[in-house]
Amino acid sequence: MSAYVLQQLINGLVLGSMYALVAVGFSMIYSIVRLINFAHGDVAMIGAFSTFLVFAAAGLPLWVIVPATLAVGAAVAAIIEFLVFRPQRQAPQVNGFITSLGVSILIQNVGILLLSAQPRSVRLPGLLRTNHDFFGARVTTLDILIVAATLISLLVLTLFVKRTRLGIAMRATSENVSAAQLMGIPVNRVITAAFAVGGALAGLAGLMWGGRYGQIDPLMGFVPGLKAFVAAVIGGVGSLAGAALGGYLLGMAEIMIVGMLPSEYGSYRDAFVFGLLILVLLVMPNGLLGKPAEERA
């Protein structure tokens, strides 16, 4: 395998890791409250800004920055849930979806107002930008950390959902909200927890995104958020493993389109992503790993 192909595979893996992190949170929230949360990508943006504008600027070391960013993401998502989604629990699904679009536009524009729409370049400590040679391909320490941190997060998340009381409560709630409530599960608290966990992962993804691409701006979260949704749908909405798989597939496919096809097709990347989405939805409406949804009158 040529070094070029290997390089593309690595880039795809890194991009896919970030999509996977956002997609898993997306999917978690969806499986419990049946809400497609457009504002999820903007939580990642807030995570990136707090990382670079606050924590890194204050000179904190990385082992403080990462948990702090996770906390910010969790807090922001939980607050959004409490303020706008909780009062609408009984409303039709589409209302929640439109609301989340509103929240997303609101966050972005408040961001533009307070921080300006100009992208800022951000830098990570030199240590993270060190290049390593990997069979001829170039890999930075950050790339390795992104892939490793994603895998660890996904592993911890799986254990959390399968083994802990709260995780089991989450799965019960996603199975059937009213039955869970009757069993004495504090449904509201479980939902807030799901938002918080998803938000923490999104915040982490924001940190990675900013570090990897070297710049942050208030609109940076929207398109990756949308694509993470596409990833979640491809994998099967509601399935965490599916979301992670979809994230990696999408990241890999995107990089391959740009890297492997003649360059005049490179600019069709986003059209390809959404074309793929429509195709997957038509051929496998439940995604790769999703469960079939039953239809009730």
Binding site: I36, R269, D270, I278, L281, L282, P285
Partner: peptide
Amino acid sequence: FPVLRLRGHYLAVATLGLIVIVQVLINN
């Protein structure tokens, strides 16, 4: 024909995809 087989959220995101697809096509 294909897209309207989807419902609710899925339809919303697929039609959002239409915007992106048309934008990319016109751009190119």
